[in-house]
Design a protein around this nucleic acid. Structure first.
Lengths: 192, 192, 192, 192
DNA sequence: AGTTAAGCGAGACGGTACGTCTCGTCTTCGT
DNA sequence: ACGAAGACGAGACGTACCGTCTCGCTTAACT
């Protein structure tokens, strides 16, 4: 007996619509009807694939939520490399923050979702940051080695704080202020 | 003729219950019946005061959301003062973070709420931080003046980032790491 | 020590307002707040006097609604007198059946109230009916004396049954059918 | 396009639950939420079918409450047959008078509903009464034929009047008084 | 004249039920 | 398998009314 396979094209349309809506209105205010409508699908098609709304959202996170930053080019100076890194981080967070925020209140009372999300969060290759710092040492811009994790942690904190309490868009002034006012003084201090 | 005023005691009970529930389950999952039950009030009493759930929550934010830190004592050293400040900030954020998170997804699609919340966020008397820094200059721990707003901004960013992505409780190790690893190097760098 | 008596003026205002509203909107749609407002009284003043809405309305019926039938004229024949009596009864019941029906569900579970109402229901001076029957005996239309209470009881039953299960208005055909079909045969049989 | 029809299985569950609750707690104390809960239905499902509680109850009465009197046995005498009939009527009315009374105030302002209910009220097979009367004629107890509808109408009036203004229980004295004092004289008079 | 217990209008209050609505999920049709 | 449509359970929403309570004010004996 022939069994028609579930059309992968429909999967994508539904996942896309779900991610958009998650960002726009959050988990609770997002309805399955909205998803169906935006994906030009019927609710039956959704329920044929996923057991329910939470399962769909978990799948969205697993498949679509990659915080990869673009590889940082060598700009020739620590200041430039740091600014490029920070700018990339801003863009990445800007793209995902509404999704994270949309999910956040649900996470408090939904451990399953919280675990899944956390498992897909780090994603950033710290080697990138390490390389950036080593280049600076070689150039003589830094007196000694610096822990890349610590630096990236502060950078993330600055970006998320800005995003949550001021909201997008993030402009160049914020990048300059953060790099010149915080990150540069900090790495210099850490380097010795 | 006497006109019975709305009992302020009821206001408080309702606002308290609302704030608790906001923290526990978030805006969307919080129901008016839950609020009424917890406040030992009837729904009529709530609707006599506020036009609906959103209006009530806006009021909660306006009246109850004060991030006042306890006054920072002089501990005799910059490091001690900074640690005390940071610890107070952690406690304050720890108290409010579930509320903010509970509201956050709503804020995305509710500008009214977002604006109100933001207007009531700073609340921190920066004079406190300023005094702390001046004491350090007088003691000779810092070479020059430092912008208290900038320092407080970084501190807030660290605390909120930690709270959102790791969650409570915040322990002494995080305080030590933040003060010694970030704040102290930074103020020293800024002070010249 | 002085004890202030309940002001009878307030009684009247409340009873008046109640009667007006009863005829304007009926028992169910009339609220105690409306009564209070119209009587320029407070609900406390009402509840100080009556245990509830049904009790108040029963009192209204008792005091304001005496089921006085118009005095039955001598029409010259038993049939005519009976028809006049029955017609008067119909009108009387038609005027207040809505009230009694509105109360009925309360009466079922409140025997006290039911008894009170019942005590004021007949209101009809049975002497009237007795006189009617005596005239018939004198005229030679009846062979002997008849219990007026029994006759009136059957008449009431016919009218109320009709009112409840068919509703107003009551027309002349019903009067004729009742008098000729039931009451006349019955009194003749009773008279021996 | 397909249109899902209302599931008749749900109809039954709701009607059953309603009838149970009606007999357990009565019309007034029965809430729509209780019905929904017991029928494992949602209120929406109920309100999709009926406009409100009264309409639902009328439907219950119409579908589930046929006023069938127990078949009247031949007791050997007109007086005995009449008494048996009247007793059966009393029991039947006693069983459902609370229901009708609970509805009565709604019926006053809802002619549509009143008509529906009325159409399902008699339900009594008048053939029964007719047979009873014919037996009496055959026995020689009655001089001629009698209209069974007219007799039954008077009987109903007596019972309902008693029920509404005196309430249950109805005892044997009332039966005796009604049969001997009203019904017997009446049929004899009608029979000529 | 002053005291004082009560009545009074106003209206807030807790409670309960209502009828409406939205939403997640399931089911059926016709393509 | 898919879209369209909509029934269903669950349960929140905002409204209405009930009967109770508290508030300040007034009234009319009794001091």
């Amino acid at each position: 007996m022939h069994v028609a396979p579930l059309d992968p094209e429909r999967d994508r349309a539904i996942l896309d619509a779900t991610m958009e809506l998650l960002s726009e209105v959050g988990f609770d205010r997002m309805t399955v009807d909205q998803i169906a409508k935006r994906a030009k699908a019927s609710k039956a098609t959704i329920y044929r694939r996923w057991a329910g709304k939470p399962e769909l959202v978990v799948d969205v996170i697993c498949r679509r939520f990659d915080m990869d930053l673009p590889p940082g080019e060598d700009t020739g100076s620590l200041r430039g490399d740091l600014a490029a890194l920070f700018r990339g981080l801003c863009e990445s967070v800007e793209r995902k923050h509404t999704l994270v925020i949309g999910l956040s209140s649900t996470l408090v009372s939904n451990q399953e979702l919280a675990r899944t999300l956390r498992a897909h969060m780090p994603a950033k290759d710290l080697g990138e940051v390490g390389a950036l710092l080593e280049r600076a040492v070689e150039r003589g811009e830094l007196a000694g080695p610096v822990d890349p994790g610590r630096l990236f942690g502060v950078a993330k904190a600055l970006v998320w704080h800005r995003m949550i309490f001021t909201g997008p868009p993030i402009g160049e002034p914020f990048v300059a202020e953060s790099v010149d006012g915080v990150l540069m003084p900090l790495v210099r201090a850490w380097a010795g």
